[in-house]
Every structure is written in C-alpha cells, then in structure tokens.
Simulated assay, not measured.
Amino acid sequence: MAEEAKTRRRSTKAEQRAETMEQILDEAELLFSRHGLHGVTLKDVAKRVGVHHTLLNYYFEDKKKLFDAVFARRAVVTSTKRMQALDEYDRASGGKPTIEGALHAFLDTDLDLYIHGGDGWKNYGALGAQVANTPEWGAELMDSHFDPVVLRLIELLKKAMPDCAEEDIFWGYHFVTGALMVTLARTGRIDKLSGGVCKSEDFEAIKARMAAFMAAGFRQICNKKA
C-alpha cells in the first residue's frame, strides 16, 4: 500500500509538472506572438502563469531557450503532418503528382491546424510569421524545423514540372511561403483594404484559393502546362 501511495504521488507530481509546463508554453506563446522575443520577459510569462519567475529559469535557463521550446512544440506537429500528407499524396498519385495536388497536401494540411486548432494554433501562426521574417536568428529556427518537409514539397514539384528550371521552382516556393507567412500573421490589413469583404482570420477562404493561385503562378514562371 505504501509503495502504491508513493507511485501515485510521483504520478501526480509528474502530471502537475506537465500541466505547469503546458501552461507556461501556452502563455509564453501568446505573449511572444504579440510582442516578439525582445518584447517579453520571463517575469511577464511567470505573472500570467501565476508562478515565480525563478521557476521559469529552472526549467529553461533563459528567455531564448523558452522561446525555442515554444516554437518547437508545434513545429514538430505541423512538419510531421505535412510530411505524411505529401508522402500519402505521392503514393496516391502513383508517383505522378500535379502542381495543385502537391500544394494542397502542403498548404491545406497546415491551414487545417489553424482552422481547427483554436487560439493556440493561431498564436503559433503569428509567431511563425515573426520568426520567418527575422534574419538574425529566425532563419536558423526555420531551417532546423522545416527544411525536410519543404524539400519534400520541392521534390514533388520537380516531378510535376520535370522541364521547369530548378531556380524557378525554388522561386515559386519562395512566393508560396511568403504568402503563407502573411496569412499566418493575421494583420487585418486585407480587412481594411477590402472594406470587410475579406478577413485575415478567414482561413477557410484562404484554403479554398491559395493552392490554385500558387499553381497558376508556378505554371506562368515555368512557361509550361504541367
């Protein structure tokens, strides 16, 4: 009985620690998505969580390590899901992918997370947009987490457009990721420009249009039908 009680206590402590860690990451994600790495302190995060800031120092040592942990938590989810979607599409196409098919697998899988994942995923999207536009250290984070899935997309696009110059395919991807990052930032600019006809929060509308739009762009710069 005593051993069982000890096991339960250990389990409870582990569960409590896991819950606290998730809360820390959630609150840090929210703050970083709004104010960036340099606009947030560990004390800011600790205050929102309701713990002393020394606890955050204990878990993460410094603010950059906390930021990296926040970014990595969902990066592995979206990169894994997109890799699986691309692999499944490649198999389903019999190794003969189309431009639209590859882009749908890559983009729609990611957009679905922001459509169905709640505020946490939307905060992460805004954070990702910041990271992607921070040359000082953001490129390194993007490289380490997303290069494999991006190169898998490039591989499928090369299959879909075998006569397209490699540089045009990479430029095409550059435009795709730029549009995706603006989308994830949700600045509200399109709301104002369109007089409310379009809304930056409307990921469903974006999903319905983005892959087809980008596929047309690839065809244009590659100057061929694929």
Rank of each mutant, 00 (worst) to 15 (best):
A132M: 05
Q220H: 13
L42D: 09
A212I: 03
D110M: 10
A5R: 04
K199N: 13
T80E: 15
D143I: 10
G101K: 15
G125S: 05
A102K: 07
G118T: 08
R219M: 12
T177E: 04
A46L: 11
A226F: 02
L86E: 06
G101Q: 13
G195W: 12
K13V: 14
A102Y: 04
R152S: 06
H104M: 13
T98K: 02
I154V: 08
L107D: 03
L66S: 06
K43I: 03
R34V: 01
H38V: 01
L141W: 12
C222R: 03
A129F: 00
L37Q: 01
H35K: 13
L31G: 07
Q130G: 03
H38W: 08
K224H: 09
A5W: 01
A139G: 03
F175Y: 15
E88M: 07
V49Q: 09
E22W: 06
L111C: 05
D108T: 04
G50R: 08
A69W: 08
R186G: 04
H145Q: 10
T80P: 04
G217A: 12
R219I: 00
R189K: 13
D87G: 00
V77I: 15
M21A: 04
R219G: 11
L25A: 10
A129E: 04
A5F: 09
A165P: 02
G101P: 11
R91H: 13
I190N: 05
E22H: 13
Y58T: 11
E27Y: 10
R8A: 09
P135L: 15
N223A: 02
